[in-house]
Design a protein around this nucleic acid. Sequence first.
DNA 1: TAGATTGTTAATCGATTAACAATC
DNA 2: TAGATTGTTAATCGATTAACAATC
Lengths: 209, 209
Amino acid sequence: MKSPTTISKATIDRLPLYFRTLRLAQDEGLDIISSDELGRRLGITPEQIRKDLASFGQFGKKGVGYFVNELKRNVGGILGLDNHWNIAIIGIGHLGAALANFHNFVTLGFNLVALFDEDPDVIGTTVNHVKVEDIANLEQIVKERQIHIGIIAVPAAFAQGVADKLVSAGVKGIWNFAPIKMEVPAGMHIVNEDLSVGLSSLSYHITRQ
Amino acid sequence: MKSPTTISKATIDRLPLYFRTLRLAQDEGLDIISSDELGRRLGITPEQIRKDLASFGQFGKKGVGYFVNELKRNVGGILGLDNHWNIAIIGIGHLGAALANFHNFVTLGFNLVALFDEDPDVIGTTVNHVKVEDIANLEQIVKERQIHIGIIAVPAAFAQGVADKLVSAGVKGIWNFAPIKMEVPAGMHIVNEDLSVGLSSLSYHITRQ
DNA sequence: TAGATTGTTAATCGATTAACAATC
DNA sequence: TAGATTGTTAATCGATTAACAATC
């Protein structure tokens, strides 16, 4: 595998789509897939796909295509999915509970190992076979269970406080659903998932057609 | 307001962030804000912000900054939020129910006017004061209540079928949470919100630091 | 007037597309 | 061998950054 010098963010964001499509192709029993077919299934040009993949190495066979199993394993490896990161969700409201029930996490190789809330009525309940624990014990439990990724699903006003705790407990990354810009130390990885962006941009487009 | 010739997708996706920050500034009672301060709050360069805004018109005062109320109203208008689009959610599982409870929709000016599911146990229940109706009546109700945007929160296998019905019933846009590439007629606006992309790209980054 | 800050043009940087040689 | 398809280089396109004139 080529050492990734500088890969575009756009490329990285397409890799999960390739992974998803390869998994489906695998389920269909497909052995070989071309960049053309992959592109057709995703609405992405085949050139783009070949370029994206080529930045990490040579995974295909000229004149033939890509072996589905092999490419899926490789793309999964590039994304680091075989690390089977331990994840925790903080804030078990409607969204947090929905996230806890995503079986996509399992498919992608993540382990949901803890849920946290501050509401006494919620603490002690079980969501998707995982017990909700007191957020007061967040730092201790994150360390004990070696949680790598914290998923923030608390109201915006509490998000920074939760992020601070996660950082000091030593997580490697944060997936943030609170609509707020978080301050974290340089080097901490954070992905923001502000749902209002998608809906608003849809509004923009339908407004002017 | 300048007629938007060709605005970058990146610009459009930043507008909701500006809107959100302006709303917060308004709540703080701030009258005027500079591109510098706006940028500081969002982690975006002031030049970028000025460029983005300038593609739609001249909203600021040189030497002064932007009037918070006025700019917020303008950005909201650009995003088409004052159209108060009618929205419906299809698939009231964990995610659909969480979306139905988002009060951000209200803040952004959207009206949640219908919820649909196919499960008889779910039909007839109420989520956030809205009744869940039989998906069999989707097309009729979408027409009757003039629903502009359909939010798809059903399993991937059913998503295309739902999209087809939404299109034939005349929605203007689709916000899709199913991890699948949808086929829709040219001109139909569709925004995909595949949550596994964000988490996987986080995995990519923490894998190589 | 002096200081601050926008709006806009030019320069740079990055990402996509096109073309095609390599090769299965 | 002929046809198909990758991997890579070059060309184009688009987005960001830098610089600065305009002006409040």
